[in-house]
Amino acid sequence: MYYIDPHIHMVSRVTDDYERIARMGCVAVSEPAFWAGFDRGSVDGFRDYFRQLTEFEPKRAGWSGIQHYTWLCINAKEAENVELSREVIKMIPEFISKPGVLGIGEIGLNKNTKNESIIFQEHVQLAMQLDELILIHTPHLQDKLKGTRMIIDMLMSDRRVQPERVLIDHVEEHTVGLAKEEGFWCAMTLYPITKCTPSRAADIIEAYGDDRIMVNSAGDWGPSNPIAVPDFIQELRKRGHPESKIKKIVYDNPLEFFRQCRRFEFTPPDTLADNAALVVSQKV
């Protein structure tokens, strides 16, 4: 089955992982800007990172036939440095119109601090000004419920925010309802130990339905599994869910959300195959 991984940090993965996920059926990935494992010291560090996300990663993904999309921001972990965060936010418009950029993300909260909240709102402000989609990181472990509520409070207090243009990520059993009730898109991150497992994600789908929800691997530099989405597909198959239902979650839903971005261009894999065949027949 073809699938899309809507949240995976491929800069942290080797080229072999692109090849592996392609073999498992992945046809597109979206890569939010995130924390590199250390705090970057200057805006130029982010400029180079944004170039990597918008120029090199699409090329590297293309070597395995995968379409690459990205999101831009300074993540919550580095938002404690308000001065640097503001410099990065100021730079985002230089990159926002590049092909493959889907919007502002992954913005959010980490430790639910005042500075994180201020920088979150400044990102939202930028997204509203530029009419961009938003991808949101919610905190992990004990901070998640409080942080998700704070994020929704900030979004709902801004009347310009259209919930259907916002994706709230890393939802779990206690936060999925909060996001869905307010009309936001949401995503579950399948991650060893600290986040959701494929079976729990399948339970959440059975409890909350398959509208406005997707799953991702968040494959990054930590312990993570870039083929977690196929594990989720297999879990739903084992439970007897129809292929059409599974495809909706892992392929149709990400496309429906991404298509709201005016720059979004996607070549369906079947069309790619037809095009390749056409080229071969023309050569013959």
Partner: peptide
């Protein structure tokens, strides 16, 4: 049960946080 257990391991939410922070 899963949601209830998640809530046990969650920090308290203060609905007036925004006034205090922003």
């Amino acid at each position: 049960r899963a949601a209830q257990i998640q809530e046990i391991f969650s920090d308290q939410y203060d609905p007036t946080w925004m006034k205090k922070y922003l």
